[in-house]
Design a protein around this nucleic acid. Structure first.
Lengths: 207, 207
DNA sequence: ACCTGAACACCGTTCAAGT
DNA sequence: ACCTGAACACCGTTCAAGT
């Protein structure tokens, strides 16, 4: 078959299959992906002209749409919105830990992702944060979220194998799913940051 | 020449050249690296048996030795040591932003890096942090540092091109080297975390 | 022990040919 | 517009051969 009457592929289908492959294997291989879709490798390029890079950026878009906050609820304070923004952002990436390293290796260009950052910036602006404060806030929140998503992925067996050490002992002492520890310390960090931001905003406020 | 009387290569030499190549080009290619060293690609494997992966892990080791704190100074409080640990850790990676994505893609196994985490854990333990608190502290600090190192790498032109937006406006309003913003918000976040940790330790202390 | 060159099994991307 | 198969220029890794 050369050109089917109804397309065998769609952009969305490719992104979904790619995400699944990354979740399952930790890597993205185009030949493997095409095979899984029952198609030749070069066929992918008809739906995703930018190739591998565009596929990864497309996945970022899918995840952003699914998990990142964009609109403040009525009556929501900046602190509530920011918390919701950060928690949603992190949860989405923590659910697909293997994609995070791929995403961090390339620049954010997807509109859905950028829109979500913009929404956070606007909420902070309306709450009275100055330009500089707002920039710091977005930056530091982004850092914590990304770092936490990477951490959620990190295996802790390395420590178990090290035998006697404070860290190994602490890990053994608090038996739980690694993901729980990662999430709990993220939430702890998030509240600390929110408090820190609130305090700083107060200190340089004009009105 | 088949086997020179004095070796053409050394492990250290390879790691250094690899780091330089990543700094300059953003990627690590073994054929390119070997060519730069004036040697065949397969020669690398005599000094670094684990190949590409071991080279990257070796770079992590070099950077850890150079920049991560391991021993508390006399009279240093846990907060002072933790601050120094985090700042050194981040500065080292921020100085080589291109290596960070490569490092986050693979598990930490280098002893020098693990030793540094262990040193932090011990300081916190001695300061009266419980196992659970200590684990949270190390995790959240690690997250912030890694996330900040990634952020330091992110170009902000993306925003400039977006025209009118709160974030773009804020970036234009605070003209400065991007690295400065990144470092400043890291320091802000760090102090917030330290305060948060101090507060939490107090709340669950026994003695 | 250390270097070489060839060989192996892969990559991602492009493109002419076909409907 | 959409799929194919061949072609291109790469990868990282292994290994026998050589000193």
């Amino acid at each position: 078959m050369v050109r089917p009457t109804t397309p065998l592929l769609s952009r969305d289908q490719i992104l979904r299959a790619a995400l699944q492959q990354i979740d399952e294997t930790g890597t993205l291989g185009l030949p493997r992906l095409a095979k899984h879709l029952g198609v030749g490798t070069s066929s992918l390029y008809h739906h995703v002209k930018g190739g591998r890079e565009e596929i990864i950026e497309g996945i970022r878009g899918v995840l952003s749409v699914e998990g990142m906050a964009t609109d403040p609820h009525p009556g929501e304070t900046w602190r509530e919105f920011t918390r919701r923004w950060a928690i949603g952002y992190r949860a989405t990436y923590a659910a697909h830990p293997n994609v995070v390293p791929l995403l961090t290796a390339q620049t954010v260009t997807h509109p859905a992702t950028l829109d979500s950052y913009e929404a956070l910036a606007e909420v902070l602006h309306d709450a009275g944060f100055s330009d500089a404060e707002l920039l710091d806030a977005v930056t530091v929140l982004d850092s914590l979220v990304l770092g936490s998503a990477l951490d959620a992925d990190a295996p802790e067996e390395v420590w178990a194998e090290r035998g006697d050490s404070s860290l190994a002992r602490a890990i053994r002492a608090t038996r739980e799913r690694p993901g729980d520890r990662s999430e709990r310390s993220f939430l702890l960090g998030l509240e600390s940051l929110l408090t820190g931001l609130e305090h700083r905003r107060g200190s340089s406020r004009v009105e």
